[in-house]
Structures are given as structure tokens and as C-alpha cells.
């Protein structure tokens, strides 16, 4: 158990150290003191309630997309489509929120809208799953292409039929809104953090149960590690992949409620804003473990919110560079990526 933990923590910790060193050098190249900048970064994020609320908000979406990518990787699938699955989930949740009458009980409206988000993402995830199982189409290509298709389709629907004039968003939902944290803890006032974070944590918990304590999870991980052995063990590899892809899409889709139901109260073009892609980094740094993913999501959310705090001293793009360094360093050191690289190299050597 301890060995496992050390093995799991090693790559992210090394990555963090490498990123820190790169960060120091960059900050000094702007003539600033690293200590001051890092202190500012922490003060602007974990140091005050508003900043912390923003971190929680951003981490919520990243938790969903990180979990989505990680369940894919556990099954041996690389889902690059979390971005459009997230958007589709938010769109469907928003659509249902618009359609439901305000007199409909909120206690039913919220679960219905959450379910709609999962369905939206799951539908987008089902396409690459089906194409992979039926025709052997590689999910990376399909999910990348589908990002363009789905986002364009949603933009067309919103811009052509649903938007409020002069804006890129739909009218405000009439039902299914999720309460902000500030309505329970006034200190969070003004921050976007909302109760979706509870949904995110429950999802992480359920995913852990599914992956490590259920028969389907046992089979899913087996397919991801050694599909031929799984087949020998009576696992239906095709339907397992299909299920994993739908589940991955559905979890990414759930992320959409954070913005649509919890923050703005409407669907807006481009609200995903790269959170789907950043989910890949979150999954890698979090070592595809639900607990790791939650921590990694907090980390990336801190960096992204912290960029705003240090803007006075160094360009906020500095944190983007740091993010990149972390991703690269982790990617170089995690076994999954190394084995993928080895596989990719093989045909040349043969």
C-alpha cells in the first residue's frame, strides 16, 4: 500500500519541483522575487474567501473533466473530446432549465437538469465509442473531430435560434438553478462557487467505487491494461469500451452544470473555455485516481486563478507556462505515457 502510494505520488511531485524551478527562473527574468510572486499567488487564491471561491468553482469543472478523461484512460481509451462533451452537457441542462416551468418543484428540476447534462455528454461520448467498437476508428481522431462538429452545431443552434439578441447566450433558465455557496457562507460573496462542487465530490466518490469495488470496474481496468486477458476472463471487451466511453462523456457533460445551472444560469457559446482539454492534464497529474484528480483539479484551478493575482508583477501568462511545464514533466514520467511512447516507437525499430 505504501509503495503504491509512493509510486503514485512520485511523478506529480517531481513535476511540481521542475515547474517551481522553471517558475523561479521566469519570475527572476522579469526582475521580480519568486517569493513575493508566489506569496501573491497564494494570497489571491487560498488567502481570501473570494479567491478561494473562484478556485473551488474552477476546480469543480476540472474535477468533472479530469474524472472523465481518467475513466477513459483506465479503460485504455484516450478521450480528447471532454471539451465538447462538457459543452453538450451544459447545453442540454440549460435547455431543460429553459423548458421547465418555474412552478415545477425545484427538488425535481435540479436532478432532471443534472441528468440532462449527463445525457448530453454521454451522447457525444457514445459516438466515438460506437465507431471504435464497430469499425475500429481511433477514439483520439474521432473525439478531436467531434469537438469541432459538436461545438459548431451548438453554436449554430444558439446563434440561430436561441440567443438573446446582441449576446452569444440563451435566455436565463426558468428552473433548475443550483445555489451559490455564498447563500450559505456570505464570505464567498461574488465568487462563482456553487453547490455543483458537492455533485463533483459525489461523482468522484461513486467513480472510485465503480472503478475499484465493482465487477464492471474490475473488468474495465482489465480491458485497459490487457484486453486479451480480459477477453480470456470472459469480459465483453467491445461493450466495456462502449460503456467506458459513454460514462466518460456523461461525467464530462455533468461539468456543464457548474457554469450553466450554478454560475450564469444560461448556456453561453464557448463557456467550456478549454476546461475539457485541461481535464487531460488533471487526469495525468491526478494519476487517473479519483482522489488524485480532485487534488490535481484544485492545483490547476489555483494556478489559473492565481494568474490574475500576480498580473501586477509578471504577465499572467506565466502560469500558463507553469501549467505547461507541469503537464510536460508529468507526461514524461507517468508509466501510461511512457508505454504509449514505447508502443509508438516500435514499428520504426522493427
Amino acid at each position: 500500500m505504501r509503495e503504491k502510494l509512493e509510486e503514485a505520488l512520485f511523478p506529480p511531485v517531481v513535476a511540481l519541483l521542475v515547474a517551481l524551478i522553471c517558475g523561479d527562473l521566469l519570475i527572476m527574468s522579469y526582475g521580480q522575487s519568486p517569493a513575493t510572486v508566489y506569496r501573491l499567488l497564494l494570497e489571491g487564491t487560498w488567502g481570501n474567501a473570494y479567491g478561494f471561491g473562484q478556485v473551488l468553482y474552477k476546480a469543480t469543472t476540472l474535477t468533472f473533466t479530469g474524472l472523465a478523461v481518467s475513466i477513459g484512460i483506465r479503460a485504455g481509451l484516450f478521450n480528447v473530446g471532454a471539451e465538447s462533451q462538457l459543452a453538450a452537457g451544459g447545453f442540454l441542462a440549460g435547455l431543460l432549465g429553459l423548458a421547465l416551468s418555474p412552478s415545477f418543484p425545484l427538488a425535481l428540476a435540479i436532478p432532471a437538469c443534472i441528468l440532462a447534462a449527463a445525457v448530453g455528454g454521454g451522447l457525444v461520448g457514445a459516438v466515438p465509442g460506437y465507431l471504435k467498437v464497430r469499425f475500429g476508428a481511433h477514439e483520439v481522431i474521432v473525439t478531436i473531430m467531434l469537438n469541432f462538429v459538436v461545438l459548431a452545431l451548438l453554436n449554430w443552434i444558439v446563434a440561430g435560434h436561441l440567443h438573446v439578441p446582441e449576446t452569444l447566450h440563451t435566455p436565463e433558465i426558468r428552473n433548475g438553478g443550483i445555489a451559490r455557496l455564498s447563500s450559505f457562507i456570505p464570505a464567498f460573496h461574488g465568487s462563482a462557487a456553487n453547490l455543483t462542487i458537492v455533485v463533483a465530490l459525489i461523482t468522484a466518490g461513486l467513480l472510485w467505487l465503480h472503478l475499484f469495488r465493482s465487477r464492471r470496474g474490475y473488468e474495465l481496468r482489465a480491458v485497459g491494461l490487457q484486453p486479451e486477458v480480459a477477453e480470456y476472463g470472459g469480459v465483453k471487451v467491445g461493450s466495456t469500451l462502449m460503456r467506458a466511453m459513454i460514462l466518460s462523456g456523461a461525467i464530462a457533460g455533468l461539468g456543464g452544470i457548474n457554469y450553466v445551472l450554478g454560475y450564469k444560469g444560461y448556456y453561453e457559446e464557448g463557456f467550456a473555455g478549454g476546461a475539457g482539454f485541461l481535464g487531460i492534464a488533471v487526469a495525468l497529474v491526478g494519476r487517473n485516481h479519483p482522489v488524485g484528480v480532485v487534488i490535481a483539479a484544485l492545483f490547476f484551478a489555483t494556478l489559473s486563478q492565481g494568474g490574475l493575482a500576480i498580473h501586477a508583477l509578471v504577465p499572467k501568462q506565466l502560469v500558463d507556462v507553469l501549467q505547461g511545464v507541469v503537464i510536460l514533466a508529468v507526461a514524461m514520467s507517468v508509466p501510461e505515457v511512457r508505454s504509449a511512447l514505447r508502443k509508438a516507437r516500435k514499428p520504426v525499430a522493427a
Binding site: L209, S214, R215, Y218, Y232
Partner: peptide, 14 residues
């Protein structure tokens, strides 16, 4: 338990 995983399910979990 590979191949026998079905028979180790109890209340939905392994």
C-alpha cells in the same frame, strides 16, 4: 478471480 468475477458480486459490489 479472473473469469469468476461474476460470482464474487455482493450487493452490486465485489
Amino acid at each position: 478471480v479472473l473469469g469468476l468475477q461474476d460470482s464474487y458480486v455482493q450487493r452490486g459490489l465485489l
